[in-house]
Simulated assay, not measured.
Amino acid sequence: MGQEAGRSGRSEEDGFRWLSDAEQASWRAVLRGTRLLETALDDALREAGLQLSEYEIISMLSEASGRRLRMSELAALVVQSRSRLTHTAKRLEERGWVTREQCADDKRGVELVLTQEGGAAVTDIARLHVQSVRDNLVDILTPAQFQGLGDAMAVVCDHLDPHRLTDR
């Protein structure tokens, strides 16, 4: 008889590796925890009239050379489809925080450029965002737990990101 896979009642007789009870509990904690964290971070930015996805874009631009990134590269960095990034960029353009410009080295490409107003917005909003990250993640874990979480997610990113866009 094959090894039982817990609540599912399925065995490994068919050669498929089902999640154990412990694996299932961990997986569900990861899934629910990431969704709850993203919601909490989004809620904190709402008082600044911003969504997490918008802040992530202007933050990435603020750290980029020349405060500009090619749209395709930015979409990969923030894990958004190009069409979703285009819609988000439009909202940021309407605020005066970014502009779209043709790439100097490739006339077919488009870069998103952080404006002076966008840079000021990042500076103003950064404290609010970082405090929310601290309140909802960093400060509720031990330093070792936070380091372990970062290390584990870097492994996941390296596995899923063929271009190795992680910071580690």
Rank of each mutant, 00 (worst) to 15 (best):
D124S: 13
G119W: 07
E73D: 14
V78T: 07
Q51M: 08
R70L: 11
S72C: 01
E47N: 02
L52T: 03
L114N: 15
A48Y: 03
R91K: 14
Q131M: 02
M60R: 12
R70D: 12
C103A: 15
I57D: 08
A126T: 11
C103P: 13
I57L: 10
A64V: 10
L114K: 15
S83H: 06
L85E: 04
K107S: 15
Q116R: 15
G118H: 10
A75F: 10
T123Y: 00
A126C: 06
I125N: 09
A104V: 10
G118M: 07
Y55N: 01
V79W: 08
R82V: 15
M60G: 12
R84A: 11
K90Y: 11
T99P: 00
I58K: 03
K90L: 11
K90T: 11
L114W: 15
D43Q: 06
A121I: 08
D42K: 01
V113N: 02
E54M: 01
D105F: 11
L77D: 13
Q51W: 07
A75P: 13
W97A: 10
S72I: 03
S72W: 01
H129S: 05
S72F: 03
K90A: 09
A64P: 07
D42Q: 05
L85I: 03
L114C: 15
A76E: 14
L45A: 11
D42R: 03
S53W: 09
I125C: 08
A44W: 01
V130Q: 13
T115Q: 12
D106I: 04
A104H: 13
D43V: 02
L128F: 08
L85T: 02
R46T: 00
R127A: 11
Q51K: 11
V78A: 04
D42L: 02
S81Q: 14
Q51L: 09
I58M: 03
I57K: 06
A89K: 03
Q102G: 02
E73H: 12
L128R: 09
R46M: 00
Q116G: 14
E73F: 12
A40E: 07
L45V: 09
A89M: 01
W97S: 09
L69M: 15
G119Q: 05
L112C: 04
R68T: 10
C103W: 13
A126G: 04
G119A: 05
L74A: 08
R95F: 01
A48G: 04
K90G: 08
D124Y: 10
E117R: 05
H129D: 05
E47C: 07
V98H: 00
K107N: 13
G96P: 08
L50P: 09
E101Q: 01
G109P: 00
G118P: 12
L61I: 14
G109D: 03
T115S: 15
A44P: 02
L52R: 07
I57M: 09
D124W: 07
K90V: 10
A76F: 05
A104W: 08
E56Q: 01
T115C: 14
E56I: 00
S59H: 04
A126D: 12
T88V: 10
R70N: 14
T115R: 10
S53Q: 10
C103L: 14
E63V: 00
T86R: 08
I125R: 06
